[in-house]
Design a protein around this nucleic acid. Structure first.
Lengths: 242, 242
DNA sequence: GCAAAAGTGTTGTCTTTACACCCATGG
DNA sequence: CCATGGGTGTAAAGACAACACTTTTGC
């Protein structure tokens, strides 16, 4: 069908962020209190409008930095957060004010030593995803953000099966046990520490020993590793049925 | 950052379609000749503007029907094509006319008995993806469509590993050998027919025997199956290295 | 009979699992 | 000493790859 390019229906385009981390053995998502209508006072995912001169990934990285201070590139001692596009949500009526298409992005971040996520958006908080997705109406997210969050969590859960992405939840240097606790928190299961150790250390390029040891978990000192170049885990880590 | 909702930068939103099928042992994509500038006369992916009152999946299904006649719901004797969102492309400058955000969708369709894909968009054709992605400048796609196609092909290749999606390339009733030839075409490998047979028939819920047999491939008659309810294949089908 | 494709059996190898067991530290 | 977590050994069960072999059709 021929069209007049000057006659296209105008849309607003936003980026929404599903920012996940593992804190105290629980998978948590970053949420903000909405300061205006609609849904004033409710929890929502951070996000904002895409500017005319930036691409989608840049808009997501900018919003992430503005609201949390997290970077997607290594900056000094901080590990880089992982950012990837998740999916796009564009139902008419998902925002009552206008036609909005939102390109959701998924961010996996290490637990911050200084955990205050509040950037300029005041009330940002880490909330365990079990509470947000569990059902208490109290903590339901605004707009279609519960759906977006669920899609992001499912993506994270399935992607750590066959990639080294779980390391994005860890500090730059981490132990095998810390990595295992990430898997346990994200999947909500217990894994055998012995078999897990063999699996991750036995996959070439997955973990690179960095030399030192640490005892920050108690017990016998554990070797420190950083993530290796291998991004694909084959055969994959098997997610237990239960 | 507070904003004035009436002051958002306007975008055009389109859907682009990566429509894949398997014809004569080759993975093929649907391409159309552009009838206008820019890139007039070059190959491109089918697509079009999202209307103000439809959601993204509906827009993709509408464009698909307009350009190919394919349906995403079963209609009589035709198998339904599979449609899913792929990714969103929004670099400034990807379309020189204006700021366009394109939500690409992936469609997996059976090889049509009446293969004329031409809907109202005249020049639609099936082209082997090897030719489109191989490199001959002759057959390069317009805009960033080569990138979108590559992403769609990679999604299809990886998704048939762990899901029953390969059946979307087959007619409603098919044999194990036909399903195997789909895997071989999509992955570009040869698979052992005996082990393949055991794998797919041994996974509960993956294939449902439908009773009859066919001899359309020559040789001993083969049992007919349709896709079972199981959408997840665990353990996955292993894609050979070579 | 012969070619072609479907389907079954078998065997060696690799992976996963479950669990016994030892190691190195803090308190 | 003991609790805590780190790490190695080992054997049974399962999955996969390779391939010999039988079955059922069309010609």
């Amino acid at each position: 069908m021929p069209y007049d390019p000057s006659d296209f229906p105008p849309f607003a385009v936003t980026v929404d962020l599903v920012v996940l981390t593992v804190r105290r053995h629980a998978l948590c998502a970053l949420t903000v209190r909405r300061g205006e209508e609609p849904h004033r006072g409710e929890w929502a995912l951070p996000g904002g409008f895409v500017r005319t001169d930036e691409d989608l990934a840049s808009a997501a990285a900018r919003e992430l930095a503005e609201e949390t201070g997290l970077r997607t590139q290594d900056s000094g001692s901080h590990a880089a957060a992982h950012l990837e596009q998740l999916a796009t949500y564009g139902d008419p009526g998902r925002d009552p004010r206008m036609r909005v298409v939102s390109v959701a992005h998924l961010v996996l971040a290490p637990d911050l030593p200084a955990p205050t996520p509040g950037g300029d958006a005041g009330g940002a908080e880490w909330t365990p995803v079990g509470r947000l997705m569990g059902g208490a109406a109290e903590e339901r997210l605004a707009f279609d953000h519960a759906r977006i969050l669920a899609d992001g969590v499912e993506r994270a859960r399935s992607k750590i099966e066959y990639s080294s992405l779980a390391a994005a939840f860890c500090p730059p240097e981490f132990t095998v046990g810390e990595l295992r606790r990430v898997y346990e928190a994200v999947w909500g299961v217990s894994l055998d520490p012995r078999n897990f150790h063999r699996k991750v250390t036995g996959t070439p390029g997955f973990l690179v020993p960095v030399g030192g040891t640490t005892t920050r978990q108690g017990g016998r000192p554990a070797q420190l590793f950083r993530a290796g170049g291998a991004t694909v885990l084959n055969p994959p880590m098997l997610r237990p049925e239960v």
